[in-house]
């Protein structure tokens, strides 16, 4: 809202505007003393202006503190945010529709449980075009362990394109024009792959991401596989490690909010010595566990792989089974009878 709409005398209004206070939000964030000095009016006059501005602001929908939003708006915004499907509908269901954008999600589990598979699957699925209910975005894949295999990514990408083609075939009566334009090769081209060989490289890359994403605005997911690997060596000073890691976590959170993209951090599992016995826990310690908004733990239950929501501010804790097939992540066969008809 403009300052000119405030019921003020024209001289004061003129002074305000010439001093640069053209919008209401610019007034609401200064104190009366500052305003009086800047605009060259008495402090009581400035106080009156602020009071007036506040009244107008409160009756309107804009905010008192610069940049703050009310919870209702945020809820609406959040519901409008898309989710990235995992290609396993059971897993999507417990995640509230998939990996949510503008959040940092940590996924951890033992070696061989499928962390990298989820990572590759997400970097492919984020590219599903909007016509097919996807995001039509691109992916950044930060590989610290060397587990990303191009041939596997290609296999998953091919399966993804096939599924879309099948879907178009089925929906042919409804959409005539939509043909699958994507080729598996394009999918690979839209994954920005970084191989990181030390923790200094990792820190440097994370610092660089802001700039990189500003130049590549359609990046919708950042996957780090794994956040842990380089931080489990060479750190004698654990306090320093904690500081470095929490700074990195903050950066990821900022990126997620700023560009409304999903950040997925894959983590390893370690044994933790508590109360006289060893227990399984995600690596990097207790203070790290505050760093992510959502936390998903992958585990074996008999011969089936399960995912469990360990921490999330908005999702109930629940678990779901999944399998890793040659085509990528899918519902586990025992639950296939529950798959709803499209």
């Amino acid at each position: 809202m403009e300052t000119s709409r405030l019921p003020l005398s024209s001289s004061i209004r003129g002074k305000l505007i010439s001093a640069g206070y053209t919008s209401l939000s610019s007034i609401s964030s200064v104190s009366s003393t500052d305003l009086a000095r800047d605009v060259n009016i008495t402090e009581s006059e400035a106080f009156e202006i602020l009071k007036m501005a506040n009244q107008v602001t409160c009756s309107g929908s804009s905010s008192l503190i610069n940049g703050a939003k009310n919870a209702w708006d945020m809820l609406n915004e959040e519901e409008a945010l898309p989710h990235i499907t995992t290609s396993c509908s059971d897993l999507d269901k417990i995640l509230g529709g998939g990996i949510s954008c503008s959040d940092v999600t940590e996924i951890g589990g033992v070696p061989g449980i499928g962390k990298t598979q989820i990572g590759i699957q997400l970097s492919v699925n984020v590219q599903i075009p909007r016509e097919f209910g996807g995001l039509g975005g691109k992916a950044i894949y930060i590989d610290t362990e060397g587990s990303f295999m191009v041939e596997r990514a290609l296999q998953i990408a091919e399966a993804c394109v096939e599924d879309m083609e099948e879907y178009t075939g089925y929906m042919h009566k409804h959409f005539k024009a939509s043909q699958v334009q994507m080729k598996p090769k394009d999918i690979l081209e839209n994954i920005f792959y970084f191989r990181v060989c030390s923790y200094t490289e990792q820190i440097a890359l994370v610092n660089h991401l802001d700039k990189f994403i500003s130049e590549n605005k359609d990046v919708k997911v950042v996957i780090v596989d794994s956040i842990t690997f380089h931080f489990r060596q060479d750190f004698d000073d654990l306090a320093q490690r904690t500081r470095v890691l929490s700074e990195m976590a903050l950066k990821f959170m900022k990126l997620a909010k700023k560009f409304s993209l999903a950040v997925v951090l894959l983590n390893q599992v370690t044994t933790k010595y508590t109360e006289g016995s060893f227990q399984l826990a995600l690596a990097l310690g207790d203070s790290w566990s505050h760093s992510c908004t959502n936390r998903v733990i992958l585990y074996w239950n008999g011969d089936e792989r399960y995912a469990y929501i360990d921490k999330s501010p908005s999702l109930p804790s629940a678990s779901a089974s999944y399998t890793v097939t040659s085509r990528g992540l899918r519902n586990s066969s025992s639950s296939s009878k529950r798959v709803k008809m499209m």
């Binding site: 950044i140 191009v150 041939e151 970084f194 191989r195």
Partner: peptide, 13 residues
């Protein structure tokens, strides 16, 4: 820092 192209190399390592 530049990403590595996944397409330039042969798809099967």
């Amino acid at each position: 820092m530049k990403p590595r192209s996944l397409v330039s190399q042969s798809p099967t390592s």
